[in-house]
């Protein structure tokens, strides 16, 4: 028996929108402490890791650990039928080949049930080792999205370099080059507007902008984004989900020329 009631149903809608274009199918792993998902994109270049802790749910019941394979495109279609203010409940029974999404309007005058077919997914689970990162940049998520979008109109890859001067995003393409430098800026009215650079050692790495732009679909989940880099490790682009968990995107670097 599985029953999870999320008052802020829009969160689940936003989570799905942030990952559905990167990953087609994924196993949702439910346990008493919450649910998680880990999946690579079809080219095995990027990996998404999602965690939603049970504390964030108004009601959370999971009698035994269970894994449900879902097509994220189909799940997104169903969750789009929930209103932004709706309460969403996920229900499942042991051994069933379906999962039910229940949407309740805030005033309880409309209640909808959507039953979705589950699927068997053979997915590899990867161990993600704890790492000490050379540089961690925390910045407004909207600013990061803007930079990735702007640079993608010039080139295909971005070089992200962190030095004590700041963080530099660079690209080059047929029409020319672009460099955007952000300096640490903590003298802002709201903490979420700050750019904070923690650097142990300078680092410079190259990534595909197509993936970075895909990650920025998670922007509605959080005002800030954290970018963690170490040479010879995938970059981690993390969007925290208030009080509940996170969506983390890992992207393998391009080889340096």
């Amino acid at each position: 028996m599985l029953e999870l009631r999320l008052v802020q149903g829009s969160l689940l809608k936003k989570v799905l929108e942030s990952i559905k274009d990167l990953v087609n199918d994924a196993n949702f792993d439910f346990s008493s402490s919450g649910f998680s998902l880990q999946s690579m994109d079809s080219s095995h270049v990027a990996l998404v890791a999602l965690l939603l802790k049970s504390e964030g749910f108004e009601h959370y019941r999971c009698d035994r650990n269970t894994s449900m394979g879902m097509n994220l495109g189909n799940m997104s279609k169903m969750l789009k039928c929930a209103g932004n203010d709706d309460i969403i409940t996920i229900k499942g029974d042991d051994g069933s080949d379906t999962v039910t999404f229940m949407f309740e309007s805030p005033t309880q005058d409309k209640i909808a049930d959507f039953e979705m077919k589950l699927m068997d997914i053979d997915s590899e689970h990867l161990g993600i080792p704890e790492a000490e990162y050379h540089a961690i940049v925390k910045m407004p998520s909207a600013e990061f999205a803007r930079i990735c979008k702007d640079l993608a109109s010039i080139g295909d890859t971005v070089v992200i370099s962190v030095t004590k001067e700041g963080v530099k995003f660079s690209t080059r393409g047929d029409i020319g080059t672009a460099n955007i430098v952000l300096r640490q800026n903590t003298t802002v009215d709201k903490p979420e507007d700050a750019t904070v650079i923690e650097m142990n050692e300078p680092v410079s790495m190259t990534f595909a902008l197509r993936y970075m732009n895909s990650f920025t679909k998670a922007t509605p989940l959080s005002n800030t984004v954290t970018i963690s880099m170490s040479p010879d490790l995938p970059v981690v682009v993390e969007y925290k989900i208030a009080e509940m968990g996170y969506v983390r995107f890992y992207l393998a670097p391009k080889m340096e020329e």
Partner: peptide, 14 residues
């Protein structure tokens, strides 16, 4: 053009 590496080159199966 910089060749793209894969995630599986960094993280191993559990």
């Amino acid at each position: 053009v910089n060749p793209q590496r894969q995630i599986t080159a960094f993280f191993s199966k559990t």
